[in-house]
Amino acid sequence: MIVGVPKEIKTREYRVGMVPAGARALTSAGHTVLIETNAGAGSGIPDSEYQRVGAQIIKSADEVWSRAEMIVKVKEPIAPEYERIQNGQIIYTYFHLAGVDPELTRTLVKKKAAAVAYETLQLDDGSLPLLKPMSEVAGKMAIQVGATCLEKAHGGKGILLSGVPGVRRGRVAVIGGGVVGTCAAKVAVGMGAEVTLLDVNLERLTYLDDVFLGRVATLNSDSETIARTVRESDLVIGAVLIPGGKAPKLVPEALLKEMEPGSVVVDVAVDQGGCIETCRPTTHDNPTYTVHGVVHYCVANMPGAVPQTSTYALTNTTRPYARKIAELGLVEAIKSDRALARALNTYDGKVTYEAVAKDLGYEHVPIHDALGARAAR
C-alpha cells in the first residue's frame, strides 16, 4: 500500500501523523511511505530521519494526497484540503465530524472516502485507545492554560490556584470524570487548588474518590449541582465526551452570567461542539475571548502546542492499526477487528457511524451493510 503523511496545516498544529518508527514498520513490510517535506519539523523530526528508514520525501502536499491510497494525519482535513481528497481514499486521523464543518462530511460522502476516525476506535470494554493519549495531554494542559487565563493580565480575576497561607485557594470545577477530567483533576490537585469533579456515573465517582483519597470533592452531575458548582468556581473545565457525537450543553449561557467577572472556562469538548453553550472554537493564535465577563479558552487542538510529547504519545497507539490496514487492506482489517470497524465513520458514500449520522442528518448505514453493498457490486 502507498501511505501518505502530509504536513498539518491547521493553525499552529505542529504534530505529525507518523514518526520514523512507524515509517520503518511499513517500509520494512514492503509498503511505500510518502512524507511531505518538513511534515515532522514541528515535532523535532527532520526529513533525514524519515529517509533513513526508507520513506520518500515529497515536496508538495498535492503529490502526497494524489499518490497515496491511505493518508495518515493528526487533525481532520480543513477547507484547503477538501479538493485534495481522492475518490475512495482511506483517511486515518481525528475527524470529530459531528463538531466540525459539515462540508467535510459532505466531501467525504461525495468522494466515497473511507474516514477512519481515531476518536471512535473503541475496544469491547468501551475504552477509546486512540483518543486517550491526547485526552491525557489536553486534560493536563487545561489546568495549565486555565491558571494562566486567571491572571489579571490575561483578563482573569487574579487568582492563584494554589493560594498562599491565609488566602483561599482557587476553586476548580471539572465537568466529566473520564480521561480528560481525571487528568485535569490530577494537575489541579497538584497545584493545590480546591477541586470538585462532576460525573453521572456513580461507579466512576466512587473510583475517583478512592484514587484521590478525598482530596477531590466528587458530585453527581445534574443541572442543579452543575449550576451551584459552576457559580462558585474560578475555573471550569468542560470534559464531557459522547463518542462520535456532539457534546451536550451542560453549562447554559444564563449560568455564565452568574459567575464572577474574570472567571475562566476551558472547554476541552470544543472539537465535539463544546459542553458550554457560549463555546466556539478558537486557535492557538487567538485562544481566548470573553462573554459576560468570563474568559473562554476553546482551542480545538490543544495538544498541538506540545508536539514532541503529543506526536509520540499519539503514534504509539495509532501505528499498529495503520499497519493492519496496510497489510490486510481496509475491508479485511475491519472484518478482523471490531474496534477498527467502530472507527469507520464514512465509507463508499455512506455514513457508517450512528452518532455522526444522527447529528448531521444522514441516513445511518451500518458498516457491515455498507461493506456488503460494495461487495455485491
Rank of each mutant, 00 (worst) to 15 (best):
S127M: 02
E327G: 11
D359E: 09
D209M: 14
K350G: 09
A21W: 06
K10M: 15
L104A: 15
G88S: 09
P46A: 02
V137G: 02
A21F: 05
A153S: 12
Y312P: 02
V251P: 10
I175P: 07
L213H: 14
G139Q: 03
G40V: 05
S263R: 00
A147H: 08
V266S: 15
K358E: 09
G170C: 13
A147C: 12
Y118Q: 06
R231P: 14
Y347M: 11
A41M: 04
I334H: 02
Y289V: 13
T120A: 08
K10F: 13
V266N: 11
L328M: 08
E49R: 06
W65L: 12
G155A: 04
V137A: 11
E224V: 01
S43P: 13
T206W: 04
C149P: 05
T318H: 07
R342W: 03
H154R: 05
G170L: 05
Q51D: 10
D101C: 15
G54V: 01
V365W: 02
R168M: 08
H292R: 03
A227L: 03
T309D: 02
F95M: 01
I2E: 01
K249C: 10
P133N: 02
E119T: 14
L235A: 13
R342Q: 07
A138L: 04
G4Q: 00
T196L: 04
I9A: 10
P248G: 09
H296V: 14
A147V: 07
N201A: 11
D267N: 11
S223M: 10
T196F: 03
G17F: 07
N345H: 13
V116K: 03
L104Q: 05
V230R: 06
E63G: 08
E49D: 13
E8R: 07
G155Q: 01
S28C: 06
I237Q: 11
G155D: 01
A21P: 07
A184I: 12
G146H: 02
L328K: 01
N301Q: 00
A341I: 06
G146T: 11
A373Q: 12
S336Q: 15
T218D: 01
S127T: 14
E63N: 11
L97W: 11
G158W: 03
V137T: 00
A341T: 12
I78E: 06
A68K: 08
A343S: 15
A185S: 13
G178I: 05
R377S: 15
V74E: 07
D62H: 00
P261F: 08
V331Y: 05
I226D: 10
V5C: 12
P77Q: 00
T93I: 04
Q56P: 14
A188M: 09
L371M: 12
L150S: 11
R171G: 15
Y94H: 04
S43E: 01
K110L: 15
N345L: 02
V351R: 03
K7Q: 14
K7E: 07
R342T: 14
I78G: 05
H96Q: 06
P366V: 00
N201H: 00
P303N: 07
A227P: 09
K324R: 02
S263P: 10
A173I: 00
A313C: 13
E103T: 14
I78L: 12
V100E: 04
C279W: 03
A39M: 09
